[in-house]
């Protein structure tokens, strides 16, 4: 006798999908994919207990379930709300959600230094994507931003608290790796900061993963700092026989040189498997690795755009003499690449 599989039918922005009971709205949306997936800054599917904090994934539940069709009174965090049978969810089709999300993006950015030009994360930063896709242009904030000193967490990781959006992902990584709670949050409110126990260096084989989970440039790899912009590097999947981890990584090449090693990230920026510190920081030669294939990169990402193969100046430049003059140098370079 075949076991009966109970599946819940959920409709997100008018698109129906059948999912296992216990799935969150966000994961149901990810099964559909595309534009209707709510952005998530703090949720990380590989880390238990994450989510609910950044509020970018707010959605409107216009129908609770088949049994209880009442809508939910407030917008809910889709990463932490499980689906009910017959639930109807509005994401980008609800003006309330779009408006609220715009508000959240603005709030996340008011204390952010916006130092993308000197930030190593620029180009693969989730906050950049979020601001670009869901934010308003310009800011209404006119006060001084909070600032912190940079902190070295161990000799390989630097914490740049100014950029932090307090998603708590790194805290969950540290908590789930070690028994001691030595990496956590100090203080309260908008002056809270990520820190380690009295600046104690985090020392664990897998602690480098805090860099991978950080959606912004708050935790960066000191062995890669200021080496290059990510969009000038080429990602290649590779693996090696590693005694401590699975050894499946992405190598970031500039020419023949491996500039950095990260875990393999999926389309939502989440790593498939956590990698160890040896793989990340100490094996940076092609000879250490067995190469597989170039990492598939989203066409819309700046990393994908780095190759300039399909680069086309916007048509407005073609039509305007003044703009052509202003962009002379760049246009010449484009011609050369054709």
């Amino acid at each position: 006798m075949a076991e009966e599989v109970v599946k819940f039918k959920v409709t997100i922005d008018g698109i129906p999908v059948e999912v296992e009971p216990g799935t969150t709205i966000l994961n149901a949306a990810r099964q559909i994919g595309g534009d209707i997936v709510p952005p998530a800054m703090c949720y990380y599917s590989k880390l238990e207990g994450t989510g609910g904090k950044c509020r970018t994934c707010l959605v409107k539940v216009s129908k609770g379930s088949e049994k209880d069709p009442r809508p939910m009174p407030k917008l809910v965090a889709s990463c932490r709300t499980t689906v009910m049978d017959g639930m109807e969810v509005q994401n980008i089709t609800s003006p309330d959600v779009v408006e609220a999300r715009k508000g959240v993006v603005e709030m996340l950015l008011i204390n952010h230094p916006l130092d993308c030009p000197v930030c190593d994360q620029a180009g693969e930063c989730k906050l950049q994507d979020l601001g670009y896709e869901h934010g308003d242009e310009g800011t209404r904030y006119e006060f001084e931003r909070r600032t912190f000193e940079r902190i070295d967490i161990g000799d390989k990781i630097q914490l740049h608290m100014n950029r932090c959006i307090l998603c708590y992902r790194c805290v969950f990584v540290a908590n789930q790796l070690t028994d001691e709670r030595e990496h956590g949050v100090l203080n309260r409110g908008d002056h809270s900061e990520i820190s380690t126990f009295i600046h104690k260096a985090l020392n664990h084989d897998f602690v480098g993963n805090v860099i991978d989970v950080c959606p912004v440039g708050a935790l960066t790899d000191k062995t890669f700092r200021f080496k290059n912009r990510v969009w000038f590097t080429k990602p290649v999947d590779a693996h090696r026989d590693c005694p401590t981890c699975a050894g499946k990584v992405t190598l970031w090449y500039k020419g023949d040189e491996v500039l950095r090693v990260t875990g393999r990230k999926d389309e939502y920026g989440e790593v498939e498997e956590f990698i160890c510190n040896t793989c990340r920081f100490e094996t940076k030669h092609t000879s250490d690795w067995t190469l597989e294939e170039p990492t598939p990169v989203d066409h819309e990402s700046v990393i994908g755009a780095n190759h300039y193969l399909n680069f086309n100046p916007p048509s407005v430049i073609h039509e305007d003499k003044k703009l052509q003059l202003a962009n002379e140098e760049q246009l010449a370079r484009t011609e050369r690449l054709k």
């Binding site: 904090k53 509020r55 709030m107 996340l108 008011i110 006060f143 309260r188 409110g189």
Partner: peptide, 21 residues
């Protein structure tokens, strides 16, 4: 409220300080 916000979720953490200013 700015002083007492726990700083966990963004609208409250950032918004209370902004309103105060």
């Amino acid at each position: 409220y700015h002083h007492e916000s726990c700083g966990q979720c963004s609208p409250c953490r950032e918004g209370t300080g902004w309103m105060e200013k």
